[in-house]
Simulated scan of single mutants.
Amino acid sequence: MASVVSDSRDASYVRYAMLVDKFGRRKRRKPVYELQTFYGQLQHIYLLKLPPSCSRDLKVDSNGTEDTTVILAGIRSYKLDEGENVTLADAGLDFQFYTTTGGFDVVDITSVQALVGRVQSLENTRQWVIIDRSGTLARAVFADDDDQSND
């Protein structure tokens, strides 16, 4: 087994987007979804073959007679350090700082938008810097299927 050296490259860090309910903690409130960007490490890829009966129940596009293939990504997310990230965003730099990991998200593979790099901070050895060079044009846009109102 080969050892990993400190300057080796790891292409498993990604940027992904999800629709998140703004009022998710309020049980009786009608959900209002907003697009949020997340960063994390891709840890698993799941391939699911669903029979036609499941595809119909889940409202997945299929012709109704063949199995439907769904590919999911298992991603360990990172909790971004908001204070420093706001300062860099104002300067036009797309660097994100984090020190701790977040939850494990399982998302549709199409939510993964780009590979990102990361380097360890020189000032704080527990902190990492995510470098996203994909630019503003490589962002997800979700079409609203039903007419949501904010009443």
Rank of each mutant, 00 (worst) to 15 (best):
Q43R: 12
T68P: 07
R76F: 00
T101R: 13
L115Y: 05
K27P: 06
D81G: 03
G117K: 04
S149F: 01
T68M: 05
Q36N: 08
V70S: 09
D94V: 01
S8L: 00
S134L: 01
E82G: 08
S62C: 15
R9L: 06
V107H: 12
D81C: 07
E66A: 04
D147Q: 10
S8V: 01
T99F: 02
D7Q: 00
A17G: 00
E82Y: 12
A17Q: 11
S111M: 03
S55T: 11
T37L: 10
L137Y: 10
S53D: 12
W128G: 02
S77P: 00
D21E: 13
N124Q: 14
Y33Q: 15
R9P: 01
E66V: 03
G40V: 01
I109E: 14
A73T: 04
P31E: 14
D10G: 01
D61C: 08
P51A: 11
R15P: 08
M18G: 03
L48C: 06
V86L: 13
Q36T: 11
Q127W: 06
Y13S: 04
A2Y: 07
K49C: 07
G74W: 05
T101G: 00
V20A: 11
R25G: 03
K49E: 15
R139K: 08
S8M: 02
L48I: 05
D145A: 09
